[in-house]
């Protein structure tokens, strides 16, 4: 760096420093990588969804997916239902847990729980499914325990390898996620607000109705969206637990790709994938929208 250029650059201030064309080299690989391994594949799915077997543009795949004589719409229904139920259930239970946690005076407990949540929210997949099989599978430890007490859940319509079972397992990694996501907004409910409300004659119920819940609603909706996206895209747990007996969209796409299902439409999987992108995208958009509203309460 010559002394002349140093002076010039310094006078231009911090933001403009060292701006040299070759520094672009630093960002090009990143964007190139994302384009090659994310943008192009995602775009390929969207384009292929509109191509017939002979490569011509057509709506055949889309209309097959949307046809009521085909199983695909049903799959979307099950997937949406599973993700929505898991998200709402985890959201409500997690919120209760978060409120309980925040009211705890012990910093130790709180640190332990938040660390644990960070770890558990990333637990999932095959090992988790197997842990639940060992617990309440048909030969699981808790199943045996309950059977010894005279109540075998498998004689009363329960099965881990079903829709209900999936909800139970999904809650295991969704609940910690709720606590992590809702802890900052719940903590941001200021003690002063509560006191101010009380001074003005509000009962605790009034306080929650008029202050607490309105403030917590946007971050809660955002959290529900995250949970929904997480559950909607999940594949491993469902596959390991139900081996495809609950026909979720990702599982159906997997079977199509692996050639387990024979169709005469090469790009049917892409059409199913397009539907997933649309649904996850919509949830993501709602998340971003709500998140913008949240930010100001957390100052």
């Amino acid at each position: 760096m010559s002394s002349a250029s140093t002076t010039r650059v310094n006078s231009a201030g911090r933001g403009a420093r060292r701006r040299r064309p070759w520094a672009l080299i630093g960002v090009v690989p990143f964007f190139a990588y994302v384009v090659i391994f994310l943008v192009v594949p995602a775009a390929a799915v969207m384009v292929e969804a509109f191509r017939a077997n002979d490569g011509s543009l057509s709506l055949t795949n889309i209309s097959t997916v949307l046809s009521s004589t085909q199983p695909w719409l049903h799959s979307y229904g099950i997937s949406l239902e599973l993700s929505a139920i898991s998200a709402v259930l985890a959201g409500i239970l997690g919120l209760v847990g978060t409120v309980a946690l925040v009211s705890s005076p012990s910093r130790m407990v709180r640190r332990l729980v938040t660390t644990g949540c960070g770890v558990l929210a990333n637990t999932g997949g095959v090992p988790l499914a197997f842990a639940f099989i060992a617990t309440i599978g048909n030969a699981g430890i808790v199943t045996h325990l309950l059977a010894d007490l005279g109540f075998n859940p498998y004689y009363h319509g329960f099965s881990l390898y079903s829709f209900t079972g999936l909800v139970i397992v999904y809650l295991y990694f969704l609940l910690p996620l709720v606590i992590l996501l809702m802890l900052p907004p719940v903590e941001a409910l200021r003690q002063e607000w509560r006191e101010a409300a009380a001074t003005l004659g509000a009962s605790p119920r009034h306080y929650w109705q008029k202050v607490g819940l309105p403030v917590l609603t946007p971050p809660f909706v955002a959290t529900l969206m995250v949970l929904f996206m997480d559950a909607f895209a999940a594949y491993a747990t469902a596959q390991a637990l139900t081996t495809g007996s609950v026909p979720l969209v990702p599982i159906e796409i997997g079977s199509l790709l692996a050639g387990n299902v024979v169709t005469n439409q090469a790009n049917l999987g892409d059409a199913l994938g397009l539907g997933m992108i649309v649904i996850v995208g919509a949830a993501g958009a709602l998340y971003v929208f709500v998140q913008r509203k949240t930010a100001r309460w957390l100052r």
């Binding site: 990143f30 994310l38 799915v45 895209a233 990702p250 790709l257 994938g273 996850v280 993501g284």
Partner: peptide
Amino acid sequence: AVSLLPLGVPAVVIVLGVLGA
């Protein structure tokens, strides 16, 4: 923002796309 994009694309869709493209 770009680094967040993968959250919007389910893993199954990435496989579809990589195999297709």
